[in-house]
């Protein structure tokens, strides 16, 4: 343990090591570390932002769903009302139609009755006439009672 020229040698070595470290080791490593720190900070900020955005989106989604739900229920209500209306309308139409059909049928029946009556009257009058003819043939001279026959026949026609 003597002090000798080793002291000088060591000082030189020490200085060289410090210089090397200062030149080639410290700056690149420090730069990389700083950059990484920045990157991590950015990443964290981005993550936070993303989370906030997600929260907002979730809130919005809930709103949209609620809106959609209320809209849907509105639509259903409207549809129900409309359906009711349509049923009512159909019912009304059906009743109307039925009434119309009924009216038509009644008119037809009336007509039928009228035509039947006419027929009947015609037949009765012919019958009466033929009966009258029979009676009159035996008792009345056509020439004599011509006026009477015409009267009766016109009376029958008016009935």
């Amino acid at each position: 343990m003597n002090i000798n020229a080793t002291l000088i040698g060591q000082t030189i070595a020490f200085m060289m090591f410090v210089w090397f470290c200062m030149k080639y080791v410290w700056p690149p490593l420090m730069a990389a570390m700083d950059e990484r720190a920045k990157k991590i900070a950015e990443g964290l900020a981005a993550g936070e932002r993303g989370q906030k955005e997600q929260e907002l989106a979730e809130k919005k989604a809930v709103e949209v769903i609620q809106e959609a739900r209320s809209e849907a229920s509105d639509i259903i209500n409207l549809a129900n009302v409309r359906a009711g209306e349509m049923v009512e309308e159909a019912k009304g139409k059906a009743v109307e139609e039925a009434a119309k059909v009924k009216l038509g049928a009644e008119a037809e029946i009336e007509q039928e009755i009228a035509s039947a009556k006419e027929e009947l009257r015609k037949q009765v009058s012919t019958l009466v006439i033929s009966a009258a003819e029979q009676i009159i043939k035996s008792e009345i001279d056509v020439k004599k009672h011509k006026k009477l026959i015409t009267d009766v026949s016109s009376q029958l026609g008016a009935a």
Partner: peptide, 9 residues
């Protein structure tokens, strides 16, 4: 020698 070299540096 070693420690003094660093200390002198």
């Amino acid at each position: 020698n070693m420690t003094f070299a660093m200390a002198f540096g």
